[in-house]
């Protein structure tokens, strides 16, 4: 067998991974089940709140946010969008999707913003984290859906975990970028007045990186919405479900209204968070 006979699989990486994941599942499944607890608890909480409250309250709240961060036009658009989802009979799915997006974005922000700050302040850490971010963004979701299901079992929580993997990179990248784009002389000025590294971060770097961090948050929201349908493949509920069911039963109508709601919801969330990034000063 020649070394360059590439018809053969010389490195059996696939079997190694297979057996590695098998071992993980065999021995550590309980550990992974515990790990998903925080996500499960917060998701259930948010879902409960969103479905328990009267739709009118939720519509009012979202409209208020739209009005606060953008203006009357977006408030009207938000109201119409939510009314439509309700009238299409997808209110509960929309709320579940909203809860999923909220939870995944929450975890992305909690982990991603500190990581982004670290990456913004250290070239070494940035160099270390970059390949991981590239992998998270480009690995097709179907590749890691199977191990996620094996380790965490099917359901909405697994869907959120898969979403977090995919949606976290932009907030890390944009936070780092924002920190790096703060003018060095501003940092120097702060230091010249005796600011500690933490003071520099809190009073100068983070406030000035805020627009960029908000842009990262916005991207993270959009990317988690784009994962909704894929998450539905592993049993996550929400607006992905009608699309998935519609595809399986060739029910074009069902798939389309699901897709329509996803798009409209994405537009609403995008406009609101974009408005947050450019909050006008008094």
């Amino acid at each position: 067998m020649s070394f360059f006979d590439f018809d053969e699989r010389i490195i059996p990486l696939d079997t190694w991974i297979q057996s590695g994941v098998d071992k993980l599942v065999e021995n550590y499944r309980d550990v992974f089940q515990i790990m998903k607890m925080p996500v499960e608890v917060s998701l259930n909480g948010v879902v409960w709140v969103l479905t328990y409250l009267h739709p009118l309250i939720i519509i009012a709240a979202l409209c208020a946010a739209a009005y606060r961060y953008s203006g009357r036009k977006l408030a009207v658009f938000t109201a119409l969008t939510l009314m439509l989802t309700g009238m299409l009979g997808l209110w509960e799915e929309t709320m579940i999707t909203l809860a999923m997006v909220f939870c995944s974005v929450l975890f992305c922000a909690v982990a991603g913003i500190p990581l982004g700050i670290l990456a913004g302040r250290s070239d070494r850490f940035e160099g270390f984290i970059r390949p991981f971010l590239d992998a998270m963004q480009t690995t097709p979701a179907f590749v890691y859906l199977v191990p996620v299901v094996m380790l965490f079992s099917i359901g909405t929580v697994s869907g959120i975990l898969a979403t977090i993997v995919f949606a976290m990179p932009p907030i890390i990248r944009l936070t780092s970028l924002g920190i790096r784009h703060v003018h060095p002389e501003l940092v120097e000025a702060a230091e010249s007045f005796g600011a500690t590294p933490f003071q520099v971060l809190r009073r100068v770097q983070i406030p000035l990186a805020m627009p960029s961090i908000m842009a990262g948050l916005n991207q993270t929201i959009m990317m988690s919405l784009s994962m909704v349908v894929i998450a539905a493949l592993i049993g996550a509920g929400g607006l992905g479900m009608p699309v998935f069911l519609g595809l399986n039963t060739l029910d074009i109508g069902l798939a389309t209204i699901g897709g329509l709601c996803i798009v409209l919801l994405a537009m609403v969330l995008d406009r609101i968070t974009q408005g947050m990034g450019t909050v006008k000063r008094k």
């Binding site: 002389e185 120097e188 000025a189 010249s192 007045f193 005796g194 009073r203 100068v204 000035l208």
Partner: peptide
Amino acid sequence: IRRRKMCMVFQSFALM
């Protein structure tokens, strides 16, 4: 010392 004794003014102003 930087906080009490010695302060700096910059060419680029460096205002926040």
